[in-house]
């Protein structure tokens, strides 16, 4: 009550009374006891898990030994190659079908809708198996006058993996790209048209670069998913990382050890990718930082 009384007494333009001048007081830091407790509990749990692994029936020296074994490194390389090419295929298809989906042309639009519907519906593993066994439907692949080959010769595990994973990835990516294209302000489309750009040039020069800010984080996410999805290709005899690890442990029975080897490499690739993603994001975010808005 005294405070309100004092405030009331202080008229406009007058200096406030001394009891409001507290700028020289010390601000005490907050104590977060809960955080210390939680951190301690987590460390204890981690230590217990680490102990269990150390005491378990695992020969850790095998993990170290096989981490850089030629067979494993070969599998690692194959994993990376398949993931990168499948992702590139997925992104290309994703962009093409997203642009088709937003086209004024109803034929293109419906084709795009159908593509996404079909290839998102079937499990990735199933699609890999179908591509790998495509020769049962199309014994030969031919283009009159250009080439004519037996499907079994062309549909190697790599090609089947690439098509299976890349095409289903394209269905997911096209939805991400569509969201990105739609996130760009209508005024940007109009400004690009007003300087006489055709639709394709507008998409390439103005809309896509801005859509990338929305597209990159989920695509980075899906790239990481793709790294792990390639392990499905072990089923069709593509010698990627998991397949390599399995081949080794069928021979020496060091199952867990080799699965750990594979895990370590997956962890490494994914960490590297997450790191790279932040650079890509920074590039496409240029122009919207360090300024007024």
């Amino acid at each position: 009550m005294t405070q309100t009384a004092t405030m009331a007494a202080t008229g406009p333009g007058e200096l406030p009374a001394d009891e409001f001048r507290i700028a020289h007081y010390t601000i005490m830091p907050q104590r977060h006891y809960g955080r210390f407790l939680a951190a301690a509990a987590i460390l204890a749990i981690l230590a217990a898990i680490a102990r269990a692994f150390a005491m378990g029936d695992i020969e850790w020296r095998y993990v170290g030994m096989f981490l850089t074994a030629p067979a494993i490194l070969h599998g690692l390389a194959n994993t990376i190659v398949l993931a990168v090419f499948a992702m590139v295929l997925g992104i290309v298809l994703g962009v093409v079908f997203a642009v088709m989906r937003l086209s004024k042309n109803p034929v293109l639009r419906i084709v795009a809708i159908g593509y996404v519907w079909l290839f998102r519906a079937a499990p990735a593993l199933l699609q890999l198996l179908i591509w790998f066994n495509l020769a049962l439907i199309f014994p030969r692949i031919a283009f009159p006058g250009l080439f004519d080959v037996r499907t079994v010769d062309v549909m190697t595990p790599f090609v089947a993996g690439l098509l299976g994973l890349g095409i289903q990835q394209g269905a997911y990516t096209s939805e991400v790209v569509r969201a990105g294209l739609q996130s760009v302000d209508q005024g940007q489309y109009e400004a690009a048209q007003a300087i006489g750009m055709t639709r394709m040039r507008m998409l390439r020069r103005i809309v896509m670069p801005q859509a990338m800010r929305v597209i990159v984080p989920p695509v980075g996410n899906e790239f990481i998913g793709m790294i792990k999805l390639t392990s499905l290709a072990s089923v069709i005899q593509y010698s990627e990382m998991l397949h390599a690890a399995q081949t080794v442990y069928y021979a020496n029975s060091r199952v867990l050890e080799l699965l750990f080897v594979a895990s370590i490499w997956y962890l490494g690739i994914v960490s590297l990718l997450s790191f790279g993603q932040s650079f890509v994001e920074r590039y496409f975010g240029r122009g919207d930082r360090g300024g007024r808005r």
Partner: peptide, 30 residues
């Protein structure tokens, strides 16, 4: 549309281009 310039209420500059790049875009690309 090339022979008609348009200025919008909300400016609609291309945010990923600098001021100069915004101006150069049409002449070079179009």
């Amino acid at each position: 549309r090339r022979s008609i310039g348009m200025v919008f209420q909300r400016f609609n500059l291309f945010p990923h281009f600098t001021a100069l790049e915004n101006i150069v875009e049409g002449p070079v690309q179009v």
